[in-house]
Design a protein around this nucleic acid. Structure first.
Lengths: 244, 244
DNA sequence: TAGATTGTTAATCGATTAACAATC
DNA sequence: TAGATTGTTAATCGATTAACAATC
């Protein structure tokens, strides 16, 4: 859903926790823990708010203030952070830089990401040059297409490569994420190619449903559906019910 | 966040129900009903599946089959549809065209939508020409920007207008939805302008938080956050936890 | 009528929230 | 120590699911 109706995917966070500080392991039970999908999504929101605080030079922030900045309740924030283990100091608050680093680690952002994009059409071109990606640590490293008219052209500072060279190029580019912006008709086939060369994370903007094998994560952004959901709110508002 | 961590926005569906068939109104209590946000999102998914069935010429579909096509359980589907009142025939199934029309009506898609776009940059240009919008009944009718270099140019068959002419143009274009693809720094100001000319539905691709007055619906698509959420899944997978 | 499938009820499950004990 | 704020527990709330009665 954006998007969309995800089932409650829960995720092991054991290893994310890092090595236990306490070697004696007094408590053995709660080693394995899951982070609800909704909490993970909010972690990304907190990260953004922490970035702003960091730019302002704020060293410490309370759950109350950070929660307000993120638009959630402080109880929700503390509950979310508790999934990552202790992060703050009672009576004081959270160290902005430390919490930021922690969340980045949990979200797997600490190594940075190398992104390739398949399908350099209208949308693909825009995403190739989208500064929002770079700003958050996602570097676009390769563009691929099958159309001879597009191959070889330079888009967003990168030369568009032939899709046929994907296997060879991928070993050098070592992509960690792929963006899929190809036409519906070839989406599944291109997706299969991406999986075949080792991509394990795909962000799809294709309307048609695309399936991936277990172990590969596919996330779908459906722009038209976003408009449809907006549309629902409108029709509601027009029907006399007052927005609160 | 596409989406993103939405609080459980619930929505009046009383009027959506249409006039009661039974004029005698034997039951007075359950006239007002809410549709959970998650159900609304799935309605859009069902709509897409119904479109495929319709193209195939299928007159009737069972909850079991439609649910499978949409990737949910049949109980969930029937529960979702029950919010719209009776839609099927017991022992038979759902009339594909009738259900499709019903959901379109509930989502407010039956009148079509007229979309204007503010900010004809990289992303704006791509969205202006995005066929997925048209395909689902959203017609792009106006493009606006402030840069002299862009104003007057033709993008996706439309001449880019000066943002200063928004008020005048809006009265003729009668937009029902606006897409916001301007730089962070001017996002709030442009959003205010859109609201001022009567736009009540805004789809924002801006990273910075933008606020709207009550009665205006703003939905945010955060493309970088989508990648971050994918990133989390990756780091999970790499940590030895097996994807199920 | 027998068979099938909807619409709804009740049970389960998970997420949110408030309250507070732990502790800096 | 007193004040403050976290991390956690327990209660609330809502959404999902299974089962089945209604009914075509």
């Amino acid at each position: 859903m954006t998007n969309q109706h995800e089932t409650q995917a829960r995720v092991s966070a054991e290893a994310l926790r890092g090595p236990a500080v306490d070697g004696t392991a007094t408590r053995t039970e709660p080693l394995r823990r899951d982070i609800p999908q909704a909490s993970v999504a909010r972690l990304a929101v907190y990260l953004r708010a922490l970035g702003v605080l960091s730019d302002d030079g704020r060293p410490i922030v309370s759950s109350e203030e950070l929660a307000t900045a993120a638009g959630v309740g402080s109880a929700t924030l503390r509950k979310d952070l508790s999934f990552l283990g202790p992060n703050g100091v009672r009576g004081v608050g959270y160290d902005v830089e430390r919490l930021r680093t922690r969340i980045e680690g949990v979200l797997g952002l600490d190594q940075g990401h190398r992104v390739i994009l398949a399908g350099v059409g209208n949308l693909g071109r825009a995403l190739a040059g989208y500064h929002g990606f770079q700003r958050r640590g996602f570097a676009m490293v390769g563009l691929f297409d099958t159309a001879p008219a597009v191959i070889g052209r330079t888009v967003a500072g990168l030369r568009v490569r032939d899709m046929a060279s994907l296997a060879h190029a991928a070993s050098a580019l070592a992509p960690t994420v792929a963006v899929l912006t190809v036409p519906d008709a070839v989406a599944q086939q291109v997706c299969d190619q991406l999986v075949a060369v080792g991509v394990r994370c795909i962000l799809s903007f294709v309307q048609a449903p695309v399936t991936v094998p277990a172990g590969v994560e596919l996330r779908r952004v459906d722009l038209a559906m976003e408009l449809q959901l907006l549309s629902f709110s409108t029709s509601r508002n027009q029907d006399g019910a007052v927005a609160q």
